[in-house]
């Protein structure tokens, strides 16, 4: 994919973000991720059942990269197991941190590979991943308590 095509994918996901908005929050874990310096602010609603990401939706206000990254993340993770999602997330983190990563796992999220090298855009691209990891932690915490009970 050349730079132009990558930009098109990013802008398409910004103009028509996937799963933006939520009507019924029952059964969803809600987490927030924000960037205080530029007011990117995203609420993530994550539904996890039997260690599978059943659904994720989001609301918020943020720049094109943060919105687009959230949209693409959602498309990549819904229906996958927590373990697969954690593996995917760690590769995405490696990409934004300029560390070696497996581009095969990232699929469409590879479109951010050059954007994250400009200014503070890596913070924007990674924004939804913070909220996702927190939701998984909360899910695991709930699970642990149930096991203890």
């Amino acid at each position: 994919m050349d730079a132009n095509e990558k930009r098109k994918v990013i802008l398409e996901n910004y103009s028509h973000p996937y799963n933006m908005g939520i009507a019924e929050t029952d059964g969803y874990i809600k987490t927030n991720s924000n960037n205080v310096s530029c007011i990117d602010n995203i609420d993530l609603y994550v539904k996890i059942e039997n260690d599978i990401i059943k659904d994720v939706r989001f609301t918020g206000e943020a720049c094109a990269v943060a919105i687009s990254s959230t949209s693409i993340m959602l498309k990549e993770i819904i229906g996958k197991s927590i373990d697969d999602v954690l593996a995917y997330t760690s590769q995405f983190k490696n990409m934004v941190d300029d560390e070696p990563y497996d581009s095969n796992i990232l699929n469409n999220a590879n479109v951010f590979d050059s954007v994250v090298r400009t200014g503070n855009r890596k913070v924007c691209a990674y924004l939804p991943y913070n909220a996702l990891l927190e939701a998984i932690d909360i899910y695991k915490g709930v699970d642990l308590k149930e096991k203890k009970g």
Binding site: C38, I39, E61, A62, C63, A64, V65, T118
Partner: peptide
């Protein structure tokens, strides 16, 4: 357009 995008 988000202000930050204009700046970028």
């Amino acid at each position: 357009i988000f202000a930050q995008d204009v700046a970028y």
